[in-house]
Design a protein around this nucleic acid. Structure first.
Lengths: 201, 201
DNA sequence: AGGTTCAGCTAACAACGTTAGCCTGGAGAT
DNA sequence: ATCTCCAGGCTAACGTTGTTAGCTGAACCT
């Protein structure tokens, strides 16, 4: 662990400001909560305006008194999820040292996605409607990867690799019987800094 | 060329058999072709039974004389796409040498996905209905990553990382202005074998 | 000729997001 | 104390989606 750059540089200090989400009205808050429960416990297909109304004791069209539409509702879910993810990962990096930050970050990312797979899919699948998001949430959620690597494009590659590895896990796309702990270990090893020290463990 | 197993053993020889797809009936073949055109040129949202019928000069319900449903049609698209991807990537690995196989494979993977983004999404998004696929197509498409790495879990990690990197690119999820060539270069560098030879390039 | 099968058709259903328009209870203003 | 207004519910309905049921005509085989 005598890597020179590491003792001085990694993990880097956070620089992106934690974004402040506009607090939703009470009723909208309830809707978001209900939406999140339906999404996580009944699946993405069950996240329907009618089902949502049912859970809230109102009819589907009444939801439009509070929301512009389903797209906006999803955007609010993504917004909140990104901030939470950022909080979690920043915390992990805060607590890590240079030797372990990469493994800790990837482990936390994986665990977080597996804990709420449907929300993770919602956040990461398809194009991102940036105009519907609170400014800065994307940077906030992604910065831990930069703090862990110290180089923006390595950070992007690491984030992308982590995403690919976890989304395939959530979707059950690996060959049956795969030991995914080993897959993650291989990924972590690949991104460990190829400095002169040959790591052990 | 003539690197059977000598210079470190990569690339490995192929071992998975190229799967033989059951040839569809002529009409089903037309449907698949039309579906692929609609998907790629009009987007996933346009791939509808009615639009498909329109293109074929029949009504949507008539499609059910040939297909079990939209799910099966998608499965057939995935089936064919996986074989094509396997063919392409195997060919790349065939032509590569140990020094360049990793970069060549990743570059080919990226180019292939970008050439047919909607098909790529269809193939890789969501759970895979293995029971609807021809046996062996998955192995065939994935084996090039094993041939390039020589280790199954490193191969999985590489494949997952490549997928993550490209799907985020297709969905425009990177920060605006990113130079994705550099992201891919960082990914490639991370997975380059940390053997004693420090290659340059 | 007669029966069977193939491959089209229309009509219709359930579920989806969403819009239009009505009604009502209660808060705030006079 | 009464009036006004409107937030927030409601029903009805529209246009999509995938899909099923049932009819029909043509081709084909005996």
């Amino acid at each position: 662990m005598g890597t020179p750059q590491a003792l001085g540089g990694l993990p880097l200090a956070p620089v992106a400001p934690r974004p402040e989400l506009a607090p939703p009205s009470p009723r909208v808050g309830e809707i978001i909560t209900a939406a999140r429960e339906v999404l996580e416990q009944e699946g993405a297909a069950a996240l329907t305006m009618r089902r949502l109304g049912e859970l809230l004791g109102i009819r589907a069209p009444s939801l439009y008194k509070h929301l512009a539409g389903k797209t906006q509702l999803e955007a609010m879910l993504v917004d909140a999820a990104l901030v939470e993810t950022g909080d979690l990962l920043h915390g992990v990096v805060d607590r890590a040292d240079a030797a372990g930050v990469l493994g800790d970050l990837l482990a936390a990312y994986r665990a977080h996605a597996r804990a709420q797979p449907n929300l993770y899919r919602l956040v990461t699948a398809g194009p991102l409607r940036r105009d519907q998001l609170t400014a800065g949430v994307e940077d906030w959620a992604g910065e831990p990867f930069y703090r862990a690597t110290g180089e923006p494009y390595l950070a992007q590659a690491l984030w992308a690799a982590a995403h690919g590895t976890v989304i395939l896990e959530l979707d059950g796309r690996y060959p049956p019987g795969s030991d995914l702990d080993r897959t993650w270990a291989a990924l972590t090893a690949a991104f460990r800094r190829p400095v002169d020290d040959d790591r052990s463990g």
